[in-house]
Amino acid sequence: MNQALIIIDYSYDFVADDGKLTAGKPAQDVEENMVNAINEFVDKKAPIFFMMDIHKENDPHHPETKLFPPHNIEGSAGRDLYGKVGERFEEIKSLDNVFFIDKTRYSSFAGTNLDLLLRERNIDTVVLGGVVTDICVLHTAIGAYNLGYHIQVLENCVASFNPDGHTVALDHMKNSLAAEII
């Protein structure tokens, strides 16, 4: 099993108390676990992908413009990796196995080169952490499933602003996508 860690949208706007679309305390509560997962993958010299939502302010063509308040705006501090995860990224970003990739849709696979980078490295298993469990994490898991990857979700590294949605998403990933919830 060749694994890669994918950290999804762990940004200021999604995690901080005053973030534009924050999951708040549940997202803040997984911070240490995320750092531990990052450290584990650094130690294994396995690939780590930081997938980050990016938007243009008031983009009339993006479907999220009608659904959510403006968030993760290009050039804003809201896109910065949050807290200790951001600090750890700054320490490891020059490593050959660490990537930061912008994404414009919920799935980390939609419109990015993530699949190509994973296949170049013979990755067959994606390990997911980040926010929001029932939106971008779930859609990334669906994308991984459709591309034939084995999926592991670090339950102590995902969070949502919707507790019911979080639970339903974990259940869906386990029972419909054969994801291991670990």
Rank of each mutant, 00 (worst) to 15 (best):
I181T: 13
N156M: 09
N122M: 13
A110V: 03
G129T: 09
I151D: 06
P163D: 09
T125F: 05
E120A: 14
N156H: 13
C157K: 08
P163Q: 13
G165P: 02
N113T: 11
L116K: 14
E180C: 02
T104S: 11
D134H: 05
E155Q: 13
Y145S: 10
D171Y: 10
L177C: 06
A141G: 06
D115I: 03
N146S: 01
K93L: 06
T133Y: 02
I123E: 02
C136K: 03
V127R: 09
L95K: 15
V98G: 12
I182H: 07
T140M: 02
H172R: 09
N162I: 04
T112W: 05
D171Q: 12
K84M: 12
E180G: 06
E91V: 13
I151M: 10
G129C: 09
S176K: 14
H139T: 00
L177E: 05
L114R: 03
H172I: 04
D134E: 11
A144W: 02
R105K: 11
D115A: 06
D164R: 15
L117D: 10
A110G: 00
N156K: 15
T133M: 08
Y106S: 00
L128V: 07
I182S: 11
N122T: 12
T125N: 11
H139E: 02
F99T: 12
R121F: 04
